[in-house]
């Protein structure tokens, strides 16, 4: 992935150019103060604030794609930066009393920047709500970005165990766990190559999410094995959902980069909680899955 910062070189360039223009304007209109008239404490305070707002711009640009929300946030922060920047320059350069634009820049840019930033944050919040709705079936209750799986947009086995532990705190409600394993994925990976087989896992995860209910959670357990947590779900319902997932995956016609169809099929294992903790429930689901796997032998 390219660093996001490179997408925004125009915005960065604009900030640098405006800062330089302000500097030139100041130098052109005023005179540099004598050394003993400079107040270092003010410079440290205002300069520090200017520097921090620059860092915020950098962090935001580096973490976001281009778009309306990014533009608003950066415009707001740039205005705030300019207000502080003029403040800092004032400490070095004495402008004649007849000039008023420096006051406008100092006192006008700040509220303008605040308004733009507020607008930006508001839209960012709206955007996040939309993303949250999309993520709903992939993460529940709390977010832990460290548990994100680098390969698919799902969480991994660690998150699965945490969520199962939470769900199993209500012993009166049975929790079902479905394990989904791709048929002979090792073989597929060698046929498809690394890039396509990784994409296959990603696309399959999208497909599985589409077939889940609002309250269900999909995780990637490891490799080509997925896990679905079905809270408050009896065996009959879980069985039916499992079959639906299998049907959906079995009729998935994955397309390779060359446009060829690679058919996949999956195996399903199911366990319904019954005095279980997360570990034993996972173990039982895996054991149920192993029954259906043709390519794994049974332990003695």
């Amino acid at each position: 992935m390219k660093p996001l910062l490179t997408l925004h070189y125009r915005s960065l360039l604009a900030v640098v150019v405006i800062a330089n223009l302000v500097l030139l304007l100041n130098l052109g209109a005023g005179d540099i103060k004598p050394w003993n008239a400079i107040v270092w404490l003010d410079i440290a305070g205002e300069g520090g604030a200017a520097l921090l707002s620059l860092i915020w711009i950098g962090l935001i640009l580096n973490s976001r794609p281009t778009g309306r929300v990014t533009r608003l946030l950066v415009a707001g922060l740039t205005a705030i930066f300019l207000a502080y920047w003029q403040d800092v320059l004032d400490e070095f350069i004495q402008l004649p009393a007849a000039i008023t634009w420096d006051h406008w820049l100092e006192s006008g840019a700040m509220p303008l920047g605040m308004i733009l930033l507020t607008l930006g944050i508001y839209h960012w919040h709206r955007e996040q709500q939309a993303i949250n709705r999309q993520l709903l079936k992939r993460e529940r209750i709390f977010r832990e970005h460290r548990s994100f799986d680098p390969l698919t947009p799902l969480s991994g086995a660690h998150y699965l165990r945490e969520q199962l532990t939470l769900e199993l705190q209500h012993p009166q409600q049975p929790v079902s766990l479905i394990m989904i394993d791709l048929h002979c994925f090792d073989h597929s990976r060698r046929l498809l190559g690394n890039a396509d087989s990784d994409r296959l896992l990603r696309e399959l995860s999208e497909l599985l999410v589409l077939n889940l209910r609002q309250q269900d959670l999909l995780c990637r357990y490891a490799g080509d094995r997925f896990a679905v947590v079905l809270p408050a779900t009896e065996r009959t319902v879980a069985d039916k959902l499992g079959q639906e997932l299998k049907q959906a995956a079995d009729s998935f016609a994955f397309k390779t980069r060359r446009g060829e169809t690679h058919a996949v099929s999956v195996h399903i294992g199911l366990a319904v909680s019954h005095d279980d903790d997360a570990q034993t429930l996972i173990e039982r689901a895996n054991r149920d899955l192993a029954r259906t796997l043709p390519h794994r032998h049974q332990a003695a």
Partner: peptide, 9 residues
């Protein structure tokens, strides 16, 4: 702490 990787791979 990642028995799942061993089980699957």
């Amino acid at each position: 702490p990642w028995p799942e990787q061993y089980q699957v791979h």
